[in-house]
Structures are given as structure tokens and as C-alpha cells.
Nucleic acid binder design. Structure first.
Lengths: 152, 152
DNA sequence: ACAAGACCGTTGAGAATGTCAATCATTGAA
DNA sequence: TTCAATGATTGACATTCTCAACGGTCTTGT
């Protein structure tokens, strides 16, 4: 039969998994997460903490529960992440007079600075990793991914 | 300004993260993984072990190291996964006479049976979760995801 | 033929992450 | 006012990630 030996890495690409969206998501996410964490490490941030910081630096003034739902994390994980960012002086917990149960997480001025640097590092790493999908393909991809990430 | 209050879940969607492929991948993967694990639980499988089983059930006859690279796992994790599947009688380790260092992982007849049932359960759950992206959009998505999952 | 180095599977440890139950303070509704 | 529901927090536990080390096996250079 075939006398052509495929390169080691490609031998498994004929598997049923190659059409499996779940598997492709898992692998793409693993690569993206590794690259993101590496890019953010110099700022003493991980992808996780950066995502919290980014939301805290926006206009939304999210509560911890909203952060948990949006980031698909357990509320207890958000506690730890906010503790960490607060310890670094990047965010603060503000109590909402309208509902004193909730804690609104907002970025400090320093937090907003670090957030911008982090965003630059993260997007640079992401564009480098996904250099082979750009232009209109990229917009298409973002649109499709949004449908997966936020199903109706 | 806007007098319209957005539903709680959508308040954060204006964030910079909504355009961030890494974040979208993370969130989509979290949802997909949860659905997949739930669908495979009745078969005593997780998404992880199913992916190993699927590769072992194919024609590729992968070594553990090839499984690790393809699934983006540490070789030590593959050891544990294969141990588990072997304990369930779904796969076996065959030693390759050509290279006695490697262990080729192959599915047993029972393993191939279970694999088919698992594939049915997994794809059903996946199509249900991603019902709003179908037809040509789905092929497009798979193509784009493959470029992310297997960068050049 | 032989030694040195590389590779594979395996074990073990420690960090990070995921999941769940229980508690306290606060809110909203009966 | 009382009672159920909600948000943050703590603690415990399972899963997953990452790394270093080891023994057995190949491979390369000499």
C-alpha cells in the first residue's frame, strides 16, 4: 500500500476528531491559553486575571456574580481572582448602596494602565499565534465563535 | 443617556473581551466541555477519555507520545488516561517490535463498540448545543477552527 | 563494538482549576 | 414581620496542568 510515510504529527489527523468541534475548541483553546499566559506573565497576570481586569476597567461596573457568569467561573473563583488583583492594587471592591450584598469590581488608575499594557501584549500574542487567519476570515471567525460562546 | 436597562447577562457584552478570540475560545470551550462531559457520563467516560478512545479506535495505531502531542496533553496524563481505559477493558497497550520503547494504544472490540455509542452521544450533544450554527456555517467554522487548532 | 546522548513511558510532586456545600449578610415578597 | 431567595465568602475535594526525575530502549559518532 502507501509507501509514503506521513510526518509524525500529521498521522492522526484523519481521525474522527478532526471534524469534532468540541475537540477543535479544546485544542485551539489550549494553544491560545498557553500563548496568552506566556505573554501576560511579565505583567504578573494570567489570562484569567487579565479577563477580570479587562471587565473591571470598562464602563460596566460588574458585580462579582456578573463576572462569574460572564467568565463561566464559580463565584468562589472570582473571590480569589479579585483578592489577587486587589492585592496588586489593580482593582477595588465598591459596595453598591442600592444593594449592599453585591460588590462592584472597578479598576484603579494603575489597574487601567496595566490593563492597556496587558491588552497590547495579549492581542500581539494572539495575532502572532493566529497569523494564518486574518482579514475578513478573522471577522467571520469572531462572529461564529460568539455564537458558540453565547448560545441563544 | 440610555434609559434602557439591559438584561443582566448582556451588560458585559460591550467589553473588549467580546472581540478577543482567546476569551471566546475559552468560553465556548467551557460550555462545550460541560455539555460533552454530561453527555458522556452515562458511558463512564469524560471528553478526555473519549478523545483517547476515538484515536485508539481508528487506524492510526498511535503511540502514547503521539496521543499526548495530538491532544495537547502531558505524557503523564496520557498514562493515567490509558490506564483508566485499559481498566475498563476498552483499550490495550501493544508493544511495537520495531521500537520497544513505545506503546501503541489500540481499542478492544468492546472499546470500538463503546466508542461508537460515545461518538453518537457526543455529536448529539454538540449539535444540540450549537444548534444555531449549522449547514454551511458549520463547515466554515470547522475549517477556521482547524486553522486555530493546528497552526502552521 | 562501544559510549554518549536522545527518546519513551512512568512515577511523583506541586500548582492551578473546577465543583460543590455551608454560612453570613442583605434583599424582596408573602 | 417572617420567610425564601440572592451575593459574597470560606472550606473541602476532585480534576487538570506542569515539571523534574528515573529506567529501559534506540541512535549516533567514534
Amino acid at each position: 500500500m502507501d509507501g509514503i510515510a506521513k510526518p509524525t504529527g500529521a498521522r492522526l489527523r484523519d481521525s474522527a476528531l478532526t471534524d469534532d468541534i468540541s475537540f477543535l475548541l479544546a485544542r485551539a483553546n489550549a494553544l491560545s491559553l498557553a500563548a496568552g499566559n506566556a505573554a501576560l506573565a511579565p505583567l504578573t497576570l494570567r489570562a484569567r486575571s487579565y479577563s477580570v481586569l479587562e471587565l473591571a476597567a470598562g464602563q460596566a461596573r460588574p458585580t462579582q456574580r456578573e463576572l462569574a457568569e460572564f467568565l463561566r467561573l464559580d463565584p468562589s473563583q472570582v473571590v480569589a481572582l479579585v483578592d489577587e488583583l486587589q492585592g496588586q492594587g489593580l482593582v477595588a471592591r465598591e459596595s453598591d448602596p442600592a444593594d449592599r450584598r453585591t460588590k462592584v469590581v472597578v479598576a484603579t488608575p494603575l489597574g487601567r494602565e496595566v490593563c492597556e499594557a496587558a491588552r497590547a501584549a495579549a492581542t500581539a500574542a494572539e495575532q502572532h499565534l493566529h497569523a494564518d487567519v486574518s482579514g475578513s476570515d478573522r471577522h467571520l471567525l469572531v462572529d461564529l465563535l460568539r455564537r458558540l460562546a453565547f448560545p441563544t
